[in-house]
Design a protein around this nucleic acid. Structure first.
Lengths: 352, 352
DNA sequence: TTGTAGGCGTTATCAC
DNA sequence: GTGATAACGCCTACAA
């Protein structure tokens, strides 16, 4: 019923050579060890039989699975699909595949997935979830398993990593707002246990100081999660405090969406009464009313670069550890306007 | 430097049994073949050494990779992350992993990924991309490779599949609009080569007839893709034709977003001048202004069910082929209102 | 340039 | 109940 799988032996038989020779001929690395015409014969035989090398057997022998594990919090977070695609595209180009694991921020789940991946003998790991000092890192090191961090930085250069420059990004946001005349600028900070939350908070402070603006502690609210609901709650707080703030730099787009909701409920208009800047440039965020001004995060490149770094480590490149930061970009849309909103020109509607 | 990996032989040695015995003791299926106390000894030894079975070797021997391939058009399409998570969660519970491949609708890429997956000896395939009659299906059959379709249906029951009931969904949309008094209802149809596009178009026609409304051919525009831009183009056409239509049932949410843009540009208000219904309930679509009324598609369950069906086939269940339809659900938000928009009550703002 | 032989780690099939 | 043995498909010293 089912076609019996074609093995190397079958190809060898048809090409009238020994399996070893067939193997050499089929492998680009070793093709030069075999005479041109025999190689050709083998290749033809393989094509005719529809030979497909058995990756599993190859892995067992070479101790390379040509797969890597990718641990992320949740694929449903719109940040990750482009990152994952970046990873997969870069890996695919190198003949690798990614095994995706969603941890949901649960340490136990993370551990389980890690075990799974080790059992499957992945050649390396891309980790977007670990906190520094995570035992997974030590274990990976002990197992000589290459690791690359995403959106996390090991400041002692102990691990390669790829992230967007969060501090710089939020500074761009503040500069933009300051340029529009805003002085009372609030910050809805992300959770401070998360490195992105912390970095953006820090960036906010420095940026304010750089612009000779005082970062009023009462205008800084910390969200418990990067969620719409938390953004709403924090914004409600700001509105209630009524401290004359005219602009908000949100820790990310989700928080900014929550801010929209709170403003709505309070009968405030954006950007006339309050300018809002997000962070990430999530898909479709430009479709909100008003379209959100935000900091673009080169998601896809984060993925490709992380994959690239990992592939280099897997290949045994043993150079200095690379800690890569990608440049964020300010995307001005309709949610920010001059202080007072007086001569609020109609915000340009990006066509996309 | 690196810990040498612990193998079955090591465990066996420590437990003073033969590797074969250790294997039996460690495998739940065969544990009963070995005496209670020896099994215990083996288990302890394994724990002490931190033994991790080598999945690769096991796969080679058992010809089960415990992995399945998943071919989708593009993970960046917001439809897919929840589906993929559903698949991964269900698979993980069964000790399986998913290898995701993005085809970008490119047949050649699809073929390449298919080859990759066969080379990796996946135990089955979830296909969201194939058109019926795709050579991949014949090849899979020839290789005895279980396949489950997603959002595609083989009406001859030749393949198991999971999809949402598109016809029923669009009928719910039309019924909703008709209930609001609309009679001149337009349809922005998705590409008719895609099964979802076709099914929804058909559903639209039947629904209109069921409500004794005439489906005016001039009020049906077919998009070349499920994209915002196409939605915009098609809507512009409708607006220009000016045939007195007061409501639009869009083939999906992206088309509906494009419709929003076109209405905006034409100075028309939604829902006062035009009611709009989408399809899919994409993440964050409730954050548009107005929040989009749409047909909810149980994304996640499509994933879990597809995985479930596939696991059953892999396990050798050979019962009748299941063609599974999941019920869509109408989600009423702010983009639809009574014809004329006269007494347009303020649309309820869902809290989420 | 090609063939030989052994083994990667596991499990299936014997025999004891 | 347990041990011995072979084999899954491939790769790679080494020998020829």
């Amino acid at each position: 019923m089912a076609d019996p799988p074609v093995t190397l032996k079958d190809v060898a038989a048809r090409a009238r050579v020994h399996p070893a020779t067939a193997s050499r001929a089929l492998n680009p690395e070793t093709r030069l060890l075999v005479r041109e015409d025999t190689a050709q014969r083998v290749l033809e035989a393989a094509a005719e039989l529809g030979y497909r090398p058995n990756t599993v057997a190859r892995s067992l022998r070479t101790r390379r699975s040509h797969s890597v594990g990718v641990l992320i919090p949740d694929l449903n977070n719109p940040l990750f699909p482009p990152i994952v695609r970046g990873i997969e595209d870069r890996l695919a180009a190198a003949g690798y595949v990614a095994l995706i694991g969603n941890t949901d921020g649960d340490a136990e789940r993370e551990r389980m997935l890690f075990e799974q991946m080790r059992a499957r003998h992945v050649d390396g790991l891309v980790l977007a979830t670990v906190h520094l000092g995570d035992p997974l890192l030590a274990e990976s090191a002990r197992a000589d398993l290459p690791v690359v961090l995403m959106n996390r930085v090991a400041h002692d250069y102990s691990l390669p990593s790829v992230s967007v420059d969060n501090e710089r990004g939020i500074r761009m946001a503040v500069a933009h707002l300051a340029g529009l005349g805003h002085t009372r600028i609030a910050h809805i900070a992300g959770p401070q246990e998360v490195s992105t939350g912390l970095a953006r908070y820090r960036g906010f402070i420095t940026a304010m100081e750089a612009h000779r603006l005082e970062p009023d502690p009462d205008l800084i609210v910390t969200a418990k999660a990067f969620s719409i609901e938390e953004g709403r709650r924090c914004s409600q707080l700001l509105v209630k405090r009524d401290l004359g703030c005219t602009a908000v730099a949100a820790g990310n787009d989700m928080l900014a969406i929550g801010c929209y909701a709170a403003l709505d409920e309070a009968g405030l208009r954006c950007p006339d009464d309050m300018s809002v800047v997000g962070f990430n440039d999530m898909p479709f965020i430009d479709r909100l009313r008003p379209p959100l001004t935000t900091i673009r995060f080169p998601h896809y490149q984060v993925g490709t670069e992380a994959a690239q770094l990992l592939l280099e480590r897997i290949a045994g490149h043993t150079g200095p550890v690379k800690v890569l930061f990608l440049a964020p970009e300010l995307v001005i849309r309709g949610s920010t306007g001059p202080r007072g909103g007086a001569a609020a020109e109609p915000a340009a509607q990006p066509r996309q």
